[in-house]
Design a protein around this nucleic acid. Structure first.
Lengths: 344, 344
DNA sequence: TGTGTTTACTGAAACGTTAAAGTTGTCCCG
DNA sequence: CGGGACAACTTTAACGTTTCAGTAAACACA
C-alpha cells in the first residue's frame, strides 16, 4: 500500500533520484547514458512507479493542469445543464488537453465564489474561462501569472487571450437570410442583452440587418430572458400574448429555439409555415429538433481546440503577447425557415 | 508577482508557520487564542494569501480533488458528445463536489490510456467512474487506496462502491407499459448488449416482460448498436428494411430515441400512431422531442449527488465497507405512446 | 514548594519532486 | 603532459505545506 517514490526507483536502479528525474523528464540539458536510461525505465515499470504530480508541480511550478470555468447560468441550476453548448465545448477542451498530456480542473462559476483562488490554489498552467466572467475581479486574474483565455467574452484587455466568433456578423447573416426569404417583421429572441456578452453583439447584428433593409426595429419584437429551454417556452407564450406580430424570429441559442418551437407548436403555431426560425450555435441538438433548425453554425469543437492551443502556446512562449482568435460562422439551412412573400 | 506563502503570513502576524496552518485548518486538537487567530486572519486577508493545495496535498495526503472518468464512447468522438446524459450527470457531480469544497479532475476514458495513473498522479481523494470501465485493469484501481465509486456498472466487487438504478426492472416497467397499451410486437433498441453493462440488464427486463405476457422475443425485433443519435437514425432505417414488423419500441436511451423518431418520421412513419416509443433516462432532451418522449425517468441529479456523497463518506470513514446505492425509477408519460387495440 | 495539567504556542522533519551546482572520470588537443 | 571540454552522473537545496514532538508559561492542587 506504500506509495512508490522516485527514491525507490533510484535505489532499485542503483542511481540517484535526480538521475531518475532526468530520465523521466528527458531533460534536454542533461546527458544520460543509454544503459542507465534502460535500467531506470526497467525499475519504473517493475515497481509500477507513477510520479506524484503534486510534488512535481510544487517543485517545478508547472502542473499540466488547465483550469476550466464554465458558467453556472443560474444559482439554482447546475452547470452546463441549461445549454448543451457548454457540454460540447467542454468535450472538445477535455479531449484536446488530454492529447497534450494535460488534465482539466473543472469548476462552475457562481457569483459568490472565488475562482481565482481555485486556480491559484492548484497552480494551474492556464485558465480557460467560458462566457462572461462573473464577478468584477477580472483584474485579479492578471496576478495569476499564467495565461488566461477568455472564450466568448468581449472584455478587451491585452492581458488576456480571447477566442470567439463574429457574433455581430453571424446575427446579421441570420437576420438578412430571413429578410431575403421575404420576412419583414422579425423577432429577436435571446438571453440577457444587458450584460456585456455575446447577446448584445448579436442584437446589434440583428439591428444592423434590419436597418440595412430599411426595416424598423420594433421594441415589441425583442424578447430577452435567459439562455435555456424554459425561456424559449416563456418567449412563445409572450409572443402569443403580444399578438403574434412577427412571421419569423432570429433566436440567439439553439436551446432557446427548442423551447420556442415547442411552445409555439403547443399553441398550434406551425414552424416554419407560421413562424420561421433561424437559430444560433448548431449544437448537436439542433438537428434533432422537429423541424430541424436552420441555424448559424459555429464550430464548437474547433473553439475548444483553439482554446487549449492558446493556453499551451502562451504557456510555452515566455512572451505574453495577446492573441485574439475569431472563428468563422456559416449558415446551415435545415427545415425551420420558409419563404414568405405575402408580408405587407 | 511573488507568491505569498504561509511563511509570509507567519512573519506578518508575528507567529510561526505552523500556527498559521493550525488557524487555517482549525485543527481540533490544537488550541489557539482568539487574538492570535484574529491576527493571523488579518494577515491572510491583508496579504491576499491563498494556500497552495499542491503543497498541502503533498504534505497531508489529501487533495480535495475527485477524479471523474467519463466514457468517451467511441475513439473519434469526444467526451459526452454522444449522450447528454453524461453532461447532466457531470453537472450534478461538479455542483455537489464544489459545495463540499472539492474540485474535479476530469478525464475522458479511451481504451489506450492509463486512467489509473491520472488519479494516482494527482493524489485524488476518490474516483468516480461512470459507465463501463474500459480496460481490464479494474483491479489496479484497488491499489489506489482511495474510494472508488462505480456509476452504472455491474461489476460486483466489495472493493468498490456502486451507484445505479434498477435497470432490469425499469426495462420491464417500460415494456409492460407498452404491453398494457395493447402492443404485442415490441422492438428493443439499445447500445451494445455484448458488454456487461446496463444494456444487457435492460434487455433482460425487456425479455422478462415479454415472457410474462406470453409474448415471443423475436430476434428480428432486437436492434443493438451504439448509444448515440446516429444509431437511432440507423435503427430506423433497419426497422424499415426489416419490414416494419413492430408497433412499438422500447429504446434504452433518449438520444437513440431522438434519432429513431427522426429517422422514422422522415420516412413518414408517425410517432406514436404507427410506432409507440418508450425511452429511458429522461435527459433534458426528452421533453424537447417531438413528440415529447414517454420515458423511464432516472434522477440524474440525484445520481451525481449520491456519487459524490459516497466518495466523501467513504473517504471520511476509515472503514472501507462497500456500499451499494440503487435509485428508484418511474415512468413519465408524455406523447410518444398510444393505445393499440387492433394488434393480432 | 514541588508536581501535574493545561494553554498556547514553536521547531523541525517530513511529503516527492526538480534543478542548480558540484564531482568525477575520460578524452582530446596543442 | 597539462589543461580544457565533455559525459555522466550525484549532492543538495529548494518548493509550501502539515504534523509530531517539544517547550515555556501559567495555573491548580495538596
Amino acid at each position: 500500500m506504500k506509495r512508490v517514490s522516485i527514491k525507490d526507483v533510484a535505489k532499485a536502479a542503483g542511481v540517484s533520484a535526480s538521475t531518475v528525474s532526468y530520465v523521466l523528464n528527458s531533460t534536454p540539458t542533461e546527458t544520460i547514458s543509454k544503459e542507465t536510461k534502460q535500467r531506470v525505465m526497467d525499475a519504473v515499470s517493475r515497481l509500477g512507479y507513477v510520479p506524484n504530480l503534486n510534488a512535481r508541480s510544487l517543485s517545478s511550478r508547472r502542473s499540466s493542469l488547465i483550469g476550466v470555468l464554465i458558467p453556472q447560468t443560474e444559482p439554482g441550476k447546475e452547470l452546463m445543464f441549461s445549454n448543451p453548448f457548454y457540454g460540447e465545448l467542454l468535450s472538445s477542451i477535455e479531449y484536446t488537453a488530454r492529447q497534450h498530456g494535460y488534465h482539466l480542473l473543472l469548476s462552475g462559476t457562481k457569483e459568490d465564489q472565488d475562482y481565482l483562488s481555485i486556480a491559484q490554489n492548484r497552480g494551474v498552467d492556464g485558465v480557460i474561462i467560458v462566457g462572461t466572467y462573473p464577478g468584477e475581479n477580472l483584474n485579479a486574474l492578471k496576478t495569476l501569472g499564467v495565461p488566461v483565455v477568455l472564450v466568448d467574452s468581449y472584455v478587451k484587455d491585452d492581458a488576456f487571450h480571447t477566442i470567439g466568433i463574429e457574433d455581430k456578423e453571424g446575427a446579421r447573416m441570420a437576420t438578412r437570410y430571413l429578410i431575403e426569404k421575404g420576412h419583414r417583421r422579425i423577432a429577436f429572441v435571446s438571453g440577457s442583452i444587458r450584460e456585456n456578452g455575446v447577446n448584445i453583439k448579436r442584437y446589434q447584428g440583428y439591428c444592423d440587418a434590419m436597418r440595412e433593409a430599411g426595416l424598423p426595429v420594433d421594441e415589441q419584437a425583442v424578447y430577452s430572458g435567459t439562455v435555456d429551454y424554459e425561456y424559449g417556452i416563456a418567449a412563445a407564450r409572450e409572443f402569443l400574448a403580444r399578438g403574434r406580430k412577427q412571421t419569423a424570429a432570429f433566436v440567439t441559442a439553439d436551446v432557446i429555439s427548442m423551447g420556442l418551437v415547442k411552445g409555439l407548436q403547443q399553441n398550434h403555431v406551425r414552424i416554419p409555415e407560421d413562424v420561421s426560425i433561424v437559430s444560433f450555435d448548431d449544437v448537436y441538438l439542433s438537428q434533432m429538433a422537429h423541424p430541424a433548425l436552420t441555424t448559424i453554425r459555429q464550430d464548437i469543437g474547433e473553439k475548444g481546440r483553439q482554446a487549449v492551443q492558446l493556453v499551451l502556446n502562451a504557456s510555452k512562449a515566455k512572451e505574453h503577447h495577446h492573441t485574439e482568435c475569431i472563428l468563422p460562422l456559416r449558415l446551415v439551412e435545415r427545415e425551420s425557415v420558409c419563404e414568405r412573400r405575402d408580408d405587407p
